[in-house]
């Protein structure tokens, strides 16, 4: 009946009950995704930031700066892919705040006492982030079309572009999850979102990188956002893609391969004290 407690951490020896695990995991995940969606709708700040901020930026860049920026084509056609990624990246970064909130308050303790796999809590945030940001992306594209964005891509190109954007959102979401697990307070986590917000500025999102000073140019050329933007731009506008598509996918997959297991480890560490 009793046994000596050894050093084995509890998480290594849980979930050996004969429940139809997969079925419950799907049902649990749906419940937690529903929670994430409710958070998005209730949390007006986050919704405003991830939907309206990119729209405002779109208007700002096209109508205020656009007239003065010479990129060899209609500026709106150049800048929209950049705005889409800015929007997606920033929206995904909000996930960091949500994850920190769960960890810093007692909410995670409640989930841990439930008969669910703990990682589903994080999964709920990831899926909600995907849904939120794909929605925001759709909104930005629709508005851009109204404002005169004239993409030339075929249906297949569009599918490819949406795929790359979705992969980018997934990557940024997981990076955000990792930061959310590192941050001790929601304030610290929201600081991270600003870092993400500025990353696209030092890329080919708004101006071609060869217009930048050499140091910045080097960074902008080799940071992951540039090949992703060039890929989306190429697919939608028919500009040359070159090896950018492979680079974009490699960056995203490479980051995911590191960040997902690290997040798993951080999650286990934070939930065992």
């Amino acid at each position: 009946m009793t046994a000596i407690i050894d050093q084995a951490p509890a998480h290594k020896i849980r979930r050996h009950n004969p429940r139809p695990r997969l079925r419950w995991a799907v049902s649990d995940a749906l419940v937690l995704v529903g929670r994430g969606m409710r958070h998005t709708i209730r949390n007006l700040d986050a919704l405003f930031m991830s939907v309206f901020l990119p729209i405002m930026l779109l208007v700002l860049f096209v109508y205020v700066f656009g007239g003065a920026i010479e990129v060899g084509t209609e500026y709106i056609n150049y800048v929209v892919p950049g705005i889409i990624l800015l929007c997606a990246g920033f929206g995904a970064a909000v996930t960091a705040v949500n994850v920190t909130n769960d960890m810093a308050t007692g909410v995670i303790d409640r989930f841990r006492t439930l008969p669910i796999a703990n990682w589903i809590v994080v999964f709920g945030h990831v899926v909600a982030s995907m849904a939120r940001n794909l929605f925001a992306t759709g909104l930005v594209i629709s508005l851009a079309l109204v404002m005169g964005f004239r993409p030339t891509g075929s249906v297949l190109d569009w599918l490819g572009a949406v795929g790359v954007i979705a992969l980018f959102i997934l990557t940024m979401t997981w990076v955000s999850v990792m930061f959310g697990l590192i941050a001790k307070s929601p304030d610290a986590a929201s600081g991270f979102t600003f870092f993400i917000l500025f990353l696209p500025y030092v890329s080919s999102a708004f101006v071609p990188t060869d217009t930048m000073p050499s140091v910045l140019h080097g960074f902008a050329e080799h940071q992951p956002i540039t090949p992703i933007i060039e890929t989306v731009r190429g697919l939608l506008m028919g500009t040359p893609i070159g090896n950018n598509a492979w680079l974009a996918v490699a960056w995203c997959v490479g980051i995911l391969v590191i960040v997902v297991p690290v997040s798993g480890q951080l999650f286990r560490r934070r939930t065992s004290r």
């Binding site: 009946m1 009793t2 046994a3 000596i4 407690i5 050894d6 084995a8 509890a10 020896i13 849980r14 979930r15 050996h16 009950n17 008969p115």
Partner: peptide, 14 residues
């Protein structure tokens, strides 16, 4: 050593 409801907390947390 700890048991709750007859179950060992470290061996049978579920």
């Amino acid at each position: 050593v700890a048991t709750v409801g007859g179950h060992d907390v470290s061996r049978a947390p579920n």
